[in-house]
Simulated scan of single mutants.
Amino acid sequence: MFALLLVVFINFVGIGALIPILPYTVVDTLGQSATVMTALLASFALAMFVANPILGWLSDRIGRRSVLVVSLIVGALAHIWFAFSNEIFHMFAARILAGLAAGNTGVIQAIIADRVKAEERAKYMGLLGAAIGTGFVAGPALGGLLSGLGDGPLHQAPFLVAAMFSIIAFGLALRLSETSIAAPIKNTDQITTPLMRRIHDILTSPLALYAIAYFCLNLAFAQVEASFVLLLKDYLDFDARATGWLFTYVGVCIVLVQAGLINPVVRKFGEVGTIAIGVILLGTGQAMTVLISLDMFFGNAFPLAQMLLATTAVCFGYALSNPSLTAAVSNIAGRNVMGGSLGTVQGFGSLGQVLGLIIAGPLYELGGAHYSFGVGTIVTVCLLVIVTQLARPQPSAVN
């Protein structure tokens, strides 16, 4: 399990490395708009949306490890391509390829679900989230601290290092034994079900509300992902390095919640209750950010402290709700279609992220951070309504 979590950590370093340098590379250096910047983020998420259910389905059919190792080496190549890109077209192509590789998230979730008991899945999904969060600790710090190093573009050094980490992850995945990953299940009707039929089955099963909830969660959080760096640049006058350190704080919050806090919270309130708590915190943090951007939250006094308070609420909310939602889905999905179900639901999350990123840039250009964060708050309120309709998962409701 440790090796697998290390693979996840390294895999997400390359994703996080782009965050603090994106507005300075795309907007300042290349002269592109905030809409193009968020579209670049959206291209990655769209590719991830397409790849998640496909890679999950393939992992059910041919085995988890094979799919995982191929995706990791493709991700490493995509990072190298991006590192040497200085034109926006090549950047888009490289990030699309990286997004296709990052569609292995559902596969990794399925590996964990294969190996642990149903009642322990929230704990291990929390550890998975902690590994992702730790990657986001190292990634933005890496992107910020190494930005501009050498004679290449601002993003070159961070992504060469990210590529090196991905190659290490590839080597670690090769060492995973077949006995540590569920063997491919053969000769089952569920495995040979076409992808679109599988999506239809999800939407007409007890997983439907969970898929919609995942969509809304990522739609709301995408406003934070896209607009936060622009807000730091314009409101606090942060540079790439300072932005990297603040995102390091974001990652630390996620690690603290998902490595330690989430397990006792789930034991006390259950998975659905934990999702609800997380959604309330997420909405509160977004609403606070709207007020901060309008100078309506204690005026201009201590702007960094205000931003840290709102950011903490957002991070704690997302860190509680995301793995709890995944654990609930894994308890509903049947073992024979675990990878496909998790990949498809994760794909709905990626679709929500795509839509959120696409609209975040135009919203920011139209009215500033309070427009994009305001939309995120409204979506979060809608998500809370959906969460109240989620029933406690019953194992094997989908098979």
Rank of each mutant, 00 (worst) to 15 (best):
D295V: 12
D295N: 15
M296N: 13
M296W: 15
F297N: 10
F298W: 15
F298T: 11
F298A: 14
G299P: 08
G299H: 10
G299W: 12
G299D: 11
F302V: 14
P303K: 02
P303C: 12
L304R: 00
M307C: 06
M307A: 06
L308N: 00
L308G: 01
L308W: 04
A310R: 00
T311I: 13
T311L: 15
T311R: 00
T312D: 04
A313F: 15
A313S: 15
A313W: 10
A313T: 11
A313M: 15
A313Q: 01
V314A: 10
V314E: 10
V314H: 11
V314W: 13
C315H: 01
F316Q: 09
G317E: 12
G317A: 12
Y318L: 15
S321K: 06
N322C: 07
N322I: 07
P323M: 05
S324W: 05
T326A: 15
T326I: 08
T326Q: 13
A328Q: 02
V329I: 11
V329S: 12
S330H: 10
S330N: 09
N331I: 08
N331M: 12
N331F: 13
G334E: 00
R335P: 09
R335F: 10
N336A: 14
V337P: 02
V337T: 12
G340L: 09
S341I: 09
S341N: 07
S341K: 03
L342H: 03
G343C: 03
T344R: 04
T344D: 01
V345L: 11
V345E: 05
V345F: 00
Q346K: 05
G347Q: 08
F348P: 11
F348A: 07
G349E: 06
G352A: 00
G352Y: 05
G352P: 09
V354K: 02
V354L: 13
G356I: 07
L357Q: 15
I358N: 13
I358H: 07
I358E: 11
I359G: 11
G361T: 07
L363E: 05
L363S: 13
L363H: 09
L363I: 13
L363C: 04
Y364H: 10
G367F: 01
G367N: 03
G368V: 05
G368Q: 03
A369N: 06
A369L: 10
A369S: 11
A369G: 05
H370W: 13
S372H: 06
S372P: 00
G374W: 09
V375T: 01
G376F: 07
I378G: 02
I378E: 00
V379A: 03
V379W: 05
T380P: 00
V381G: 14
L383Y: 03
L383H: 01
V385G: 02
